[in-house]
Design a binder for these strands. Structure first.
Lengths: 325, 325
DNA sequence: TTTTTTATGTCAAACGATTGACATATTGAA
DNA sequence: TTCAATATGTCAATCGTTTGACATAAAAAA
């Protein structure tokens, strides 16, 4: 690979001049500029970003740690994060923690070693202190870690209320809620909280099931749901904490001959792209994934540039009523 | 951030010694080793991988260009690629081209500037020569570019045959095929080819529609499919070139009161995780996504290490018969 | 004509690590 | 006692780029 020296030699100038052209600094005549460009063209020269990063002490890299990009919600989130990062010249290193503590820790070390400019954490299996000692530009999704670290979430409580309220309003008598593991101190737990409070308030019978810590071990979902419906055959309303979980419900309902929405009404959460394609199309609580992604990138950049930023970034949710309610 | 010098100073040794500890070279007494480790611990030192990369001229980075990680197939693919890359100490830079030529080109330049060790191309909107001049360790998905560049694909022709054959065997009289844009010289086009040949061979009426070049502009799918069913209301079998397209079909069928599989049978392609959750669960052609991802990483590594490698990597597909046929 | 402005060059340090060549000192074994 | 193995140090180059300090010369403006 050609270096700046090769370009300088071919253009008949010094590296300083080439660097000036490259970085638009100081005085450069058009003639020289052209010569340099031509030499770069001829050699197919691309400045070595690694060397630049080393010198500038900025890598223009953002680390993204999520459970897995193959989960539709995180896939969409990652897509938007990369989109907005790219717009402003940042690159994205993806890390799929699979919600494994060891992996998550490894990834954090790795990202620091690689001197990424900031880390977006969408997976949190570690203890609060471990994040606090990080001393690095960070943004978290759905988890409040400390007074300093900014976080992004949707209005989980509001979403939980919307969902539960809709079920009640539609006449459900016994409702269930299926959530991720509640031990992972996520803000998403507020969805469950809203569910509990609202059903209590309205005197409606309710039941909650949660996954084990392997939240994304999708194989457990089916057994959980079948179990739930067996134990409580009179459930007529379900609030699922993600659209994927809702999909399981729809399907199991279909196999058990419970018609949706006639026998059981279902509300999901996220509004992934495929939610509208389910049969019947899923009623769900929409998180503004794109806006949240954009915000995450901005929060990193603001920290890098030492600009002021908001610590709490809670995004409004929206009830998307389709045909499962 | 502390440097190797800080560690050396604190441990009371020279940087050479620290480097020896770090890289396990030469003679080091246990006592010194401990001193060094302790100093690193105390300073929370992490070797600067950027400096290392510069010196080693290896970044341990793999660039991954795909249409978008938010598409389930590519999301799953990206997940596995990152998984296998991580296992052997490689990191993954994701790039969502959105099948935009300009973006794709930008990304390639960017990846080269960042001296990634190799590029996995799952998006190909450029001309063959542009890839050939790349002169870089590359692996492509689903496209044969030159005699040198290795590629990975599923047995598209076999898959097309399996799908078409199943429809015919189940008694369909008029079958349709909906595919991505055929101009993008992809190996996936062989699915269509098999469809055409087989239906001709069996004397079965058939019709093909393809998306425009914005293959992932999902909004066009619905109109396309509705259009198709309006023009050809007697279609009783569909082979969709991806599970997502099949999902559209299932749903539109549902809205038009065409029962599946009684009135229309549907076969998808990919076998994304959600395919089994569709209602009814989707019959599809399974691509071994994980194996393909693993192979992609291996092909990059082999090129980096200048080991011999296979140019053609065609993976067998499997018919997964569920309830839409 | 003199002064500025513009255009380029020279030189060298810095970013943070690795590494080779060589020197020196301490052990332990022969 | 002598030699080899072990342990560390010194020094400097290298990876590819940026940048500051300073010098010089030509062109443009005063």
């Amino acid at each position: 690979m050609p270096t700046i020296k090769d370009v300088a030699r071919l253009a008949g100038v010094t590296v300083t001049t080439v660097s000036r052209v490259l970085n638009n600094r100081g005085y450069i005549s058009d003639a020289t500029r052209q010569k340099v460009y031509q030499a770069m063209e001829e050699l197919n020269y691309q400045p070595n970003e690694i060397a630049r990063s080393l010198h500038r002490r900025k890598s223009k890299l953002i680390g993204l740690i999520i459970p897995t990009v193959s989960h539709p919600f995180f896939g969409e989130l990652a897509g938007f994060i990369e989109y907005y990062a790219h717009l402003i010249g940042y690159k994205v290193l993806i890390c799929n923690s699979l919600l494994d503590r060891k992996k998550e820790k490894e990834y954090i070390e790795m990202l620091k070693s690689n001197r990424v400019d900031g880390i977006i954490m969408g997976s949190h299996t570690l203890e609060v202190e471990e994040y606090m000692n990080l001393n690095y530009p960070i943004v978290t999704f759905d988890r409040r870690i400390s007074e300093e670290i900014p976080y992004i979430s949707s209005d989980n409580y509001g979403g939980g209320k919307l969902a539960t309220h809709l079920l009640i309003q539609k006449g459900c008598k016994k409702i269930a809620h299926i959530s991720g593991n509640l031990q992972l101190q996520l803000l998403a737990n507020k969805r469950s909280q809203a569910f509990i409070e609202l059903s209590k308030e309205h005197g409606i019978e309710s039941v909650i099931v949660e996954t084990d810590l392997n939240v994304f071990d999708i194989t457990q979902y089916e057994a959980m749901i079948r179990n739930l419906l067996e134990k409580h055959p009179d459930i007529d309303g379900v609030f699922a904490s993600s659209d994927v979980m809702a999909a399981y419900f729809i399907q199991i309902g279909y196999f058990l001959n419970r018609r949706i929405p006639e026998h059981i009404k279902i509300v999901g959460y996220d509004d992934i792209k495929l939610a509208s394609l389910f049969v019947p199309p899923l009623t769900t609580i929409r998180q503004p994934i794109e806006e949240m992604a954009k915000c995450a990138v901005e929060l990193i950049v603001k920290q890098v540039n030492e600009e002021p930023f908001e610590r709490e970034n809670v995004f409004p949710v929206e009830l998307i009523e389709r045909l499962t309610t």
